[in-house]
């Protein structure tokens, strides 16, 4: 049982964790079968408590998916129970669902636009915040303060209502303008995330890339950002969900997103003398919740991919080496 197993590779002996795969499989299976979610979550937690090695990515992923699915399950169960208790039906009509789902495409569209703009702004402004030039730094800081200081709803009104009139472009697309407002908002917060992450990369990495004579752009692209990614992704995921929540505001300037269609349905109900039903908005909330969880899982998968790049492969056997190297005598060995 000695740990000092002599090995010519110098790499530590591999320890197998059969449960890791199981948790991952359970987690993935819980997407079609939510009942398995709690099992994956619980088992993942048990297993995580015993492990402190670095290779926990699959375990964490499996557990996280399990967790998301269990929460989904619990939420749906909770809603069913509540509505049953209140005595109202908990479902809308099929047509209303179809309207909502069609409208969610608009919401997703706005989310994608504002995410794209937000990411670009975050990168540019986040890097500019660390510029050598006082003016660039100052401008970036002013942008960040503005974007974080203003309320996104006021910004949406300014962008989608005031700006087209001020600039005399009444035909401008409301979707685009609202997405720009949200993108600016995201850019402000994202820039601070990126700035912090860049600062968190050890100084030695920058020096090493300087000693290899990489240009500043290459340094950023190949050395700093890939490492900053592990720090960037978790808060960026949260930020994206905040922006998804923010998209509900665009209904107030007349974009036909989920919220707007919900209000249309509400008008119909009022018209039909059915009264306002809380159920309608509960359903809308669930729809947003599902979208948020999709964003969540996508970011978790992305995080997993980034983590993977730190894992590396196994030792190559002599047969796998290129021929001219295989036959040459190795120069030095430890």
């Amino acid at each position: 049982m000695s740990m000092n197993v002599p090995s010519d590779t110098g790499a530590p002996p591999e320890i197998e964790h059969p449960r890791t795969k199981l948790v991952l499989v359970l987690g993935l299976l819980s997407i079609p079968i939510p009942l398995l979610g709690p099992v994956a979550w619980w088992m993942g937690n048990q297993e995580l408590r015993q492990r402190d090695d670095d290779d926990r990515g699959q375990l964490v992923l499996g557990r996280t998916i399990g967790m998301v699915m269990s929460i989904l399950l619990l939420v749906v169960l909770g809603l069913l129970v509540t509505l049953a208790a209140v005595g109202q039906g908990w479902l809308l009509t099929g047509g209303q669902y179809r309207t909502l789902i069609k409208a969610s495409l608009v919401t997703i569209q706005i989310l994608i636009y504002s995410f794209a703009l937000g990411i670009v702004l975050s990168l540019v402004v986040g890097v500019a915040r660390l510029s050598d030039h006082r003016w660039i730094r100052g401008a970036a800081l002013a942008f960040v303060e503005f974007a974080r200081g203003i309320s996104s709803i006021i910004l949406i009104f300014i962008m989608a209502v005031a700006i087209p009139i001020l600039l005399d472009v009444p035909q401008a697309s409301k979707i685009l303008l609202a997405a720009i407002a949200l993108g600016i908002n995201m850019g402000g917060y994202g820039a601070e995330i990126i700035r912090g992450a860049i600062l968190s990369v050890p100084k030695g990495q920058v020096e090493a890339s300087l000693s290899l004579n990489l240009t500043p752009t290459q340094r950023l692209r190949h050395v700093i950002l890939p490492q900053a990614m592990t720090v960037i992704l978790p808060p960026m995921g949260n930020l994206t969900i905040e922006i998804l929540k923010g998209t509900a505001l665009v209904s107030l300037v007349g974009v036909a997103d989920i919220m707007q269609s919900a209000n249309n349905i509400r008008q119909e109900q009022l018209f039909a003398q059915e009264g306002t039903k809380a159920v309608l908005f509960l359903n809308v909330l669930v729809l947003y919740f599902i979208l948020a969880q999709i964003v969540n899982v996508l970011f978790k998968l992305w995080e997993r991919r980034v983590e993977k790049s730190y894992e590396g492969g196994r030792t190559l056997t002599p047969d796998e080496l290129p021929a001219h190297i295989r036959h040459a005598t190795p120069g030095v060995t430890g």
Binding site: A11, D54, E311, G313, T315, I325
Partner: peptide
């Protein structure tokens, strides 16, 4: 990649080509 493998071989680490720093010892 060819030069890289040759250099790795020169320092006796051709077999570790696909490993990340986290998997290597200090000397490696």
């Amino acid at each position: 990649s060819d030069t890289g493998m040759e250099l790795l071989n020169k320092v006796g680490l051709a077999h570790a080509a696909n490993q990340t720093p986290g998997q290597l010892s200090g000397g490696q």
